[in-house]
């Protein structure tokens, strides 16, 4: 089976500034794939390239065999949860989730309402459809953003720092939700994170970006990299929690 996402020799940057060069990796269907690395190495920027918000300096991104997503034409075959949630502040949570359904499906208003309520139940936000985003906590905003990303049943979701800034309980709950969505719906998940507990719990494969060499420092199973990587910086990254303890 061909990979769901194939990235070949991707070079990211702007003007004379190169952020990362010649990145090559692939994400399989049904995988939970993490993009890791220290601050400023380009994790979130790589996500923006993958979802078509930025144009590569060179290289190729192919999603589902269709090439780089063109956001100007039609709807992309994925959902995205941004770091801040990026819910539309002037719309209620229900309207946020129903927006794509109104735009891209011929469903009636009632049917859209039913789907919205089902999605909110899925992410544990029953009864929140009439609330404004400003009335939600950080964790609830992220859950609502996941529900919005899943509104059109995409086979792939991109999550930018899903558990960043959440309390440990909310972070664990969100990790479990992502894992459940992956296992039950067969959803392919690509996430950017630097939360070690999340990485070990949900990611099956990962790449680690390096700011110094502007390239992929390591690729593979996070637990395997933690225990067996020959690269000291990789071991140091994965073992930093253990050290602190």
């Amino acid at each position: 089976m061909p990979p769901f996402i194939r990235v070949s020799n991707l070079t990211m940057g702007w003007g004379d500034v190169i952020l990362q060069r010649n990145l090559t990796f692939q994400v399989d269907r049904g995988d939970v794939f993490a993009i890791l690395g220290g601050s400023g190495c380009g994790k979130s920027t790589l996500l923006r390239y993958l979802i078509g918000l930025e144009t590569p300096l060179s290289g190729e991104i192919v999603i589902d065999g269709l090439g780089r997503p063109n956001l100007e034409v039609g709807r992309p075959p994925f959902g995205v949860m941004f770091q801040s949630g990026a819910l539309f502040g002037s719309l209620t949570v229900g309207e946020n989730i129903g927006l794509s359904l109104e735009q891209w499906t011929p469903l009636s208003h009632d049917a859209i309402g039913a789907i919205v309520r089902a999605k909110l139940r899925l992410v544990g936000l029953d009864g929140a459809e009439n609330k404004l985003p400003s009335e939600l906590s950080g964790g609830m905003k992220k859950r609502a953003a996941i529900a919005r990303a899943l509104a059109l049943e995409p086979p792939l979701v991109f999550l930018d720092e899903p558990s960043a800034g959440l309390d440990p309980v909310s972070a664990v709950e969100l990790d479990e939700l992502i894992l459940t969505l992956n296992q039950v719906l067969g959803l392919t998940v690509v996430l950017v994170t630097h939360e070690l507990p999340s990485i070990f719990k949900i990611a099956r494969r990962c790449i680690m970006l390096d700011k110094q060499t502007k390239s992929i420092l390591a690729e593979g199973d996070p637990c395997d990299l933690r225990d067996n990587s020959a690269e000291p910086r990789v071991r140091e990254f994965f073992n930093r929690l253990a050290k602190r303890a």
């Binding site: 956001l71 995205v80 819910l87 735009q103």
Partner: peptide, 8 residues
């Protein structure tokens, strides 16, 4: 950005 990724 969210709008764009939703196809709007």
């Amino acid at each position: 950005d969210a709008l764009r990724t939703m196809g709007f």
